[in-house]
């Protein structure tokens, strides 16, 4: 793929974190502390719900960013989210599998499916990959709709149990909030560590110059499959988390337009940064709520924002922060 598009792996600049060590660490600590403490005081149910969706959507967008960090665009991301949701829901409803285990199961299964699919399609680089992920997503929706005996078709599955921790059900929004926050932090840390490692180095090489990466002894298809599988597996796991919160899933829960929504979040937040996906979710998830009176305009606005960011702010919102930081640095 082209070298000009920013990728996640480029955040792996040597010494990057260490150089900003203290202030960065402090900022993270403050952010995390306020994320933990604030909901205790301002327990508005609506905002809590929104915060929960923001966190899970952030995981979706970040996992998509992981796939994009090797230069691949997946248009089937929502299908993996949905597949994860169905796996855990069906396991819980039919076999009484505890949701926590179901979530792990969903993540593993979707990750493996992605690896298998990736083995087939990642030999086809770039465009073919995009087209096949798109087709695979559509076929998944078709199956979910038509496999009545298992998925109950368009009616979906109801009565999905809430996650329970040590016999303590996370059935309120506040309780789930802490679970979602923990999941978010876990995924964030994992991807951050991955990008800092030799994997990140391989991913970045592939995204920037595939031929040179191969000539440097980096097994391009292997790392592309790893990124696709990890990203899709995380999406599947997070999809399971989501449906144990919503307590319902149907083929319409996660569709192609959700795949586009995740892409929008990632691009708007910033493709080149792990924070980008989270930031994009933070900005775009509440948007439909703010536009309640204007049903229909919402999607158009999503599209317009996406185009606008692509055209005028290719680095996404994250790059605004960087821009200011550089400006400040110059003034010193």
């Amino acid at each position: 793929m082209d070298a000009s598009s920013p990728t996640l792996a480029k955040i792996d600049q040597p010494h990057g974190i260490r150089r900003h060590g203290l202030p960065m660490g402090l900022a993270i600590a403050v952010l995390l502390a306020s994320a933990i403490v604030i909901p205790q005081f301002a327990a508005n149910q609506f905002y809590l719900h929104l915060a929960n969706i923001v966190l899970i959507n952030a995981i979706f967008a970040m996992s998509l960013g992981l796939i994009m960090s090797v230069g691949q665009l997946s248009l089937g991301h929502a299908a993996f989210v949905s597949a994860g949701g169905y796996i855990s829901a069906l396991a819980a409803l039919n076999f009484k599998v505890p949701p926590l285990l179901g979530i792990v199961l969903a993540g593993l299964t979707t990750g493996l499916v992605a690896a298998a699919l990736g083995k087939v399609i990642l030999r086809l680089r770039g465009v073919y990959f995009v087209l096949v992920t798109f087709l695979a997503g559509q076929v998944f929706t078709l199956i979910a709709l038509n496999w009545q005996s298992v998925t109950h078709g368009a009616n979906g599955l109801i009565g999905i149990p809430a996650i329970s921790l040590f016999g303590f059900p996370l059935a309120t929004r506040l309780r789930f909030y802490y679970f979602a926050l923990a999941a978010f932090v876990l995924v964030f840390t994992f991807i951050w560590a991955l990008m800092r490692s030799q994997y990140g180095r391989a991913f970045g090489s592939i995204a920037e110059n595939m031929r040179l990466a191969e000539a440097s002894g980096i097994d391009v298809s292997r790392y592309q499959i790893i990124a696709f599988s990890l990203g899709s597996g995380i999406a599947g796991g997070a999809g399971a988390i989501m449906i144990h919160y919503i307590r319902f899933i149907s083929p319409d829960s996660f569709t192609f337009s959700d795949s586009i929504a995740y892409i929008t979040m990632l691009v708007v937040g910033g493709r080149g940064s792990l924070v980008g996906g989270a930031l994009g979710s933070l900005f775009l998830t509440p948007l439909p709520e703010a536009l309640r009176g204007l049903a229909g305009v919402q999607h158009i606005l999503y599209g317009v924002i996406l185009l606008g960011v692509l055209l005028f702010l290719p680095g996404g919102l994250v790059s605004v922060g960087r821009f200011f930081k550089r400006g400040l640095g110059r003034q010193k």
């Binding site: 665009l73 465009v127 337009s257 586009i260 691009v267 305009v297 158009i300 599209g303 185009l307 055209l311």
Partner: peptide, 23 residues
């Protein structure tokens, strides 16, 4: 010069046209 961004742009165009048609 940027295939990926071009693809994403056409996705955005698709979303806009389709929802404008619904509207």
């Amino acid at each position: 010069d940027d295939e990926t961004s071009g693809m994403i742009a056409t996705l955005a165009i698709s979303v806009i046209i389709q929802n404008a048609a619904v509207l």
